[in-house]
Computed example of a mutant assay.
Amino acid sequence: MMHLSASCTALPELATSPTEAPIISEVSTGELDLSVSPAIFVRTVVLQCTKAITGSISGEELISGASKRVMHESYFLKYRNEHLEAYTHDKVNAVQNNDVERLRALLSSGHLMQASNRFGESILHTSCRRGLTDVVGFFLNEARVSPRVRDDMGRTPMHDACWLSGPPNHDIMKMLIGAAPEMLLSRDKRGHSPFDYARREYWPNWVAFLNEHRQFIVSSLVSSCLEGSHLLCPKVDTTNNGGLRIVG
């Protein structure tokens, strides 16, 4: 197991305070405002969702349910000793070198890929922050690593995907949304959501991505709720001619 002398999960200096989206009841008919913060826009996307996607679940209910789920103690994985012991030089070097084949060989040999250092930073965090699309895909799709993890400052892999120093990696973000859409509304210990970490020069890029993937985002939130594995979801009836109807 690797031991580090200082935390490598120190948070960046963010230019803005945590953002809250204004309540929007109707879909805007104007041109897309690419100057808005993606942290606000992602909430707007959900608030503006149509019942053709959600059935009878409103955007407000989706946001409320997802926000409560990520705050529930059962949502995030609790690290155990085996996860800390799995954080080895071999795996870290493979991630840093973008060496999926080495990671695949380690997995085939029985090595655990759900690995974190003592500060709670997993190798999935590192992969997202470095923009390593193939490595992230390997962890989520082959190694079945849970993305529902936090470092000691409350930051998720989605926070790190937004903190990427280079241009936004849409493929990584889409994988994370598909695997754990509620993390879009998670907050770290300073109250910042993932897109609060996005660099201002990349706001237009992220807003365009979120706008293009409106249906995917909302459908992922609805599907996650309906799986029944999460707590605090609106109760829904799926027998209403293929639609959704809140029953309690």
Rank of each mutant, 00 (worst) to 15 (best):
L231Y: 04
C8I: 15
P38G: 02
T126N: 07
T88Q: 10
Y197Q: 11
R69Y: 07
G191L: 12
K235Y: 09
E101Y: 08
D33A: 06
H170I: 10
I63M: 12
A180L: 00
A52I: 07
L107P: 01
N241T: 02
S116G: 09
M183C: 11
M183I: 06
T126R: 11
P157D: 01
S28T: 13
L32G: 05
Y87F: 15
N169W: 02
S108Q: 12
H72P: 00
G154Q: 08
A21C: 10
V207W: 03
V247I: 15
H111L: 04
F216N: 05
I53N: 03
V100G: 05
H111D: 13
F195I: 03
F138C: 07
N81E: 04
Y75H: 09
A115D: 01
Y87D: 04
G131L: 12
R69T: 03
L14T: 08
G166P: 00
R69L: 03
N117W: 03
D90L: 13
H170K: 12
W203C: 08
N97L: 15
P204E: 12
D237L: 11
L84D: 08
Y197A: 01
K174D: 07
G248V: 12
P157Y: 04
V145M: 14
L107G: 11
E101N: 14
S224L: 01
T133N: 10
K91V: 03
G191Q: 12
L112Q: 07
G110W: 06
S223F: 06
S122A: 10
R155S: 11
A198L: 08
G243P: 02
I123S: 00
L132T: 03
H89T: 13
T16H: 14
R129F: 05
V92H: 05
Y87G: 00
L164R: 15
H159Y: 07
G137S: 14
S67V: 05
R80Q: 10
S220G: 04
N169I: 08
L210E: 03
W206N: 09
C128P: 06
N240R: 10
R187D: 07
G248D: 14
S116E: 08
I246C: 14
G166S: 15
E121N: 10
L244A: 00
